[in-house]
Simulated scan of single mutants.
Amino acid sequence: MTGGLDLPAAGGVPPRRPSRRLEISFEAFHEFHARKWLEYARLHTGDALGAEKLTQAVYQQLADHWAHVLLQPSVDSYAWTVFKEHIAEWFLNNGRSTAAAQTAALTAVARVLLRKYGQQLALLDDRTGPRGGMSRLPERQCDVVVLRFVIGYSEDRIGALLNVDATVVRSHARHAKRRIVAELGGARGPYEEG
């Protein structure tokens, strides 16, 4: 994966070997995100092989331009944008709608919340189903709840990926939970907190 860290040099000069530090920093980035981004892609595409190819293409693009990536104000946010662009391209190339992908991802969120809160959310699948209010969450709220409750990122890491403060992440999560509760007819419970 790190063999692609060679960047074309200006003026036709052959590319230099990347520094070992570049390789190490990319390897660390890849190691930290690889499993989680693969799961995110799998949830959204519904295709394990497609998700694997998609994430490999993302990491190859990032590796090929890693020196440039490191110059960005936020490496995580820049890389996440590249990742989301690859996902959008996958949907376009495969004739799939992003709404269907969001529904699949939010179904996984519902399962996690059901395990966590048990009977308090037992009505979730019956009342919202795949076409309920959860599928109409704004993209940022959807990303936050998927990244937090299914993928397992911390609020700080989600903030770094989305280039927002952790308080904004908490706000998105809170609004998404309220929307889910509203779909349940205003039921209240601990899942509505924070």
Rank of each mutant, 00 (worst) to 15 (best):
53 K>C: 12
100 A>S: 10
36 K>D: 14
129 G>A: 03
76 D>Y: 14
47 D>N: 14
4 G>L: 11
50 G>I: 04
193 E>I: 05
121 L>M: 09
148 R>F: 08
163 N>C: 07
91 F>Q: 05
132 G>W: 01
20 R>E: 15
149 F>K: 02
115 R>I: 12
8 P>D: 10
180 I>N: 02
121 L>I: 04
6 D>S: 12
84 K>N: 15
182 A>M: 08
57 A>P: 04
176 A>N: 05
141 Q>V: 03
61 Q>V: 13
64 D>Q: 15
77 S>A: 15
75 V>M: 13
79 A>P: 06
52 E>K: 09
82 V>W: 01
23 E>H: 07
114 L>E: 15
94 N>F: 03
194 G>T: 11
99 A>D: 12
85 E>V: 09
45 T>V: 05
125 D>W: 07
112 V>Y: 09
36 K>T: 10
108 A>Q: 10
32 F>M: 11
98 T>I: 08
14 P>E: 13
39 E>F: 04
162 L>E: 04
69 V>N: 08
50 G>Y: 00
67 A>Q: 11
82 V>C: 09
89 E>Y: 14
35 R>Y: 07
150 V>D: 00
165 D>M: 01
183 E>Y: 08
134 M>Y: 07
122 A>R: 06
81 T>M: 07
120 Q>S: 09
66 W>F: 10
131 R>Q: 14
4 G>S: 09
56 Q>W: 08
156 D>W: 03
17 R>V: 14
43 L>Y: 00
19 S>T: 15
179 R>H: 14
172 H>K: 06
103 T>L: 03
134 M>I: 09
29 F>Q: 02
135 S>N: 00
194 G>R: 12
85 E>Y: 11
95 G>H: 07
134 M>S: 06
68 H>M: 10
48 A>H: 11
80 W>Q: 06
31 E>M: 13
136 R>Y: 11
186 G>D: 06
193 E>R: 14
17 R>W: 10
189 G>S: 07
169 V>F: 02
102 Q>H: 04
51 A>N: 01
138 P>T: 06
65 H>C: 12
56 Q>K: 12
73 P>M: 04
19 S>M: 14
16 R>I: 03
13 V>F: 03
69 V>W: 06
176 A>Y: 06
164 V>W: 01
172 H>C: 09
124 L>H: 03
71 L>G: 14
58 V>F: 05
129 G>M: 04
77 S>D: 12
41 A>K: 00
155 E>Q: 09
74 S>A: 12
139 E>D: 12
37 W>L: 11
